[in-house]
Nucleic acid binder design. Structure first.
Ligand SMILES: Nc1nc2c(ncn2[C@H]2C[C@H](O)[C@@H](COP(=O)(O)OP(=O)(O)OP(=O)(O)O)O2)c(=O)[nH]1
Ligand SMILES: [Mn+2]
Ligand SMILES: [Mn+2]
Length: 352
DNA sequence: TTGCTTCGCCAC
DNA sequence: AAACGTGGCGAAGCAA
């Protein structure tokens, strides 16, 4: 064998496709040549034992470099805590972003990742409360589109992600299937094509196209909402959210179809993602207000797009959780009920 | 040493 | 990469 830097995609490309001569049929892409990302290596794993080893190394290396090594060094000695910036003028939709360090992308998917999340712990005598809106952008979509099937589903208390998971990821553990179902549900609404859907679903192209067609047939009001949103955006030059935030999209008038269609997908997404951001920003005002009014001692620690994480004295967890839920669910009435999953634990992994 | 682009991947 | 969208960050590679 030979030596190469396992962290270098460029060197790995040479090893896989030139030294080992693993077939690169249908792999192409990238500005610099053949890709070595997780999709490619997963397929190559059928032809050689190395790609699977690289994938395992990549996963662990990502967790070590980005979280395990980086975060402890950033703990403030004065407070014993991590202090992040929550940026209000970065994301074009009105979401917050988090940086130095980013505390909105703490791992949760894998078992190893959850061990990192578990390191975010409440001080003794306290508990962490995590309160996360259920299916938030699908509910906002139901509100904005008025689609009768979607409205009815939420009125009945249905779980669309779980429904999709049972439909197309029946063989997977329910929690994993549900996360993959989110990619499908949001992907299709925001303009995913059949090629990508086929890969995500693990089915042939024609079947994926049929699934997308079936989706918009079932939720016909969603298709109409997307079309009218884009039409109106092109006429006005911008889209708006529930609380009136605007995003200007001059590329809607571009001659280059790729540029124009990118803007059309952004125009579709922004009213929904941005309205969800409006709601949780209001909730960030309402939750501390309600806790203070009730004489409870909770502190808001983190916002993760549709989730609030609080630190609460152990003795006050139950009343605090009840008020957090109420404040978030009643924050801004829509045509569908808002539901919030509230959990608590000694650390973020338990509470999530 | 610093700053930039590229690749890849973590989360919502 | 692909007709999902929104972010931030580490490592490699390169230029200054
Ligand atoms: N376009 C897009 N948006 C996403 C994706 N994942 C998450 N989001 C957005 C839409 C979600 O409503 C929002 C919050 O993410 P969550 O993981 O909390 O999902 P959601 O609230 O839909 O379901 P939940 O009931 O909380 O499990 O972030 C994605 O893969 N694509
Ligand atoms: Mn949610
Ligand atoms: Mn969430």
């Amino acid at each position: 064998g030979g030596e190469f830097s396992i962290h270098s995609p460029a060197q790995l490309r040479v090893v896989l496709f030139e030294k080992l001569k693993i077939s690169s049929r249908g792999v192409r892409r990238g500005k610099t040549g053949l890709s070595t990302d997780v999709d490619v290596l997963t397929r190559l794993a059928r032809d050689h034992p190395l790609p699977a080893k690289i994938l395992e190394y990549r996963m662990l290396s990502k967790l070590k470099s980005t979280y395990v090594d980086a975060l402890p060094a950033l703990v403030d000695p004065r407070t014993g805590r991590l202090h992040s910036s929550f940026n209000q003028t970065v994301a074009a939709t009105g979401r917050l972003s988090s940086s130095e360090p980013n505390l909105q992308n703490i791992p949760v998917r894998t078992e190893e990742g959850r061990r990192i999340r578990a390191a975010f712990a409440a001080p003794s005598g306290h508990r962490l409360i995590s309160a996360d809106y259920s299916q938030i952008e699908l509910r906002v979509l139901a509100h904005l589109s008025g689609d009768p099937v979607l409205l009815e589903a939420f009125t009945r208390g249905e779980d669309i992600h779980a429904r999709t998971a049972a439909d197309v990821f029946a063989t997977l553990p329910p929690a994993e299937g549900r996360r993959l179902a989110k990619v499908i549900n949001y992907g299709i609404v925001y303009g995913m094509g059949a090629a990508r859907a086929a890969r995500e679903l693990g089915v042939p192209l024609a079947e994926a196209q049929a699934y997308i067609d079936g989706y918009f047939a079932r939720y016909a009001g969603v298709r109409a909402f997307i079309d009218s949103t884009v039409t109106e955006a092109r006429a006005r030059g911008y889209v708006t959210t529930v609380l009136g935030r605007r995003r200007y999209l001059p590329e809607l008038g571009a001659r280059d179809p790729a540029v124009r269609q990118f803007a059309e997908r952004a125009a579709t997404n922004t009213p929904i993602q941005g309205s969800a951001a409006d709601l949780i920003k209001l909730a960030m005002l309402e939750v501390p207000r309600q806790l203070a009014e009730a004489g409870l001692g909770g502190r808001l620690l983190l916002q993760v797009h549709d989730e609030l994480v609080l630190e609460v004295p152990e003795a006050e967890v139950e009343p605090a959780a009840a008020r957090v839920r109420l404040a978030m669910e009643k924050v801004w009435p829509l045509r569908v009920p808002l539901r919030v999953d509230v959990r608590h634990g000694a650390n973020w992994a338990e509470a999530h």
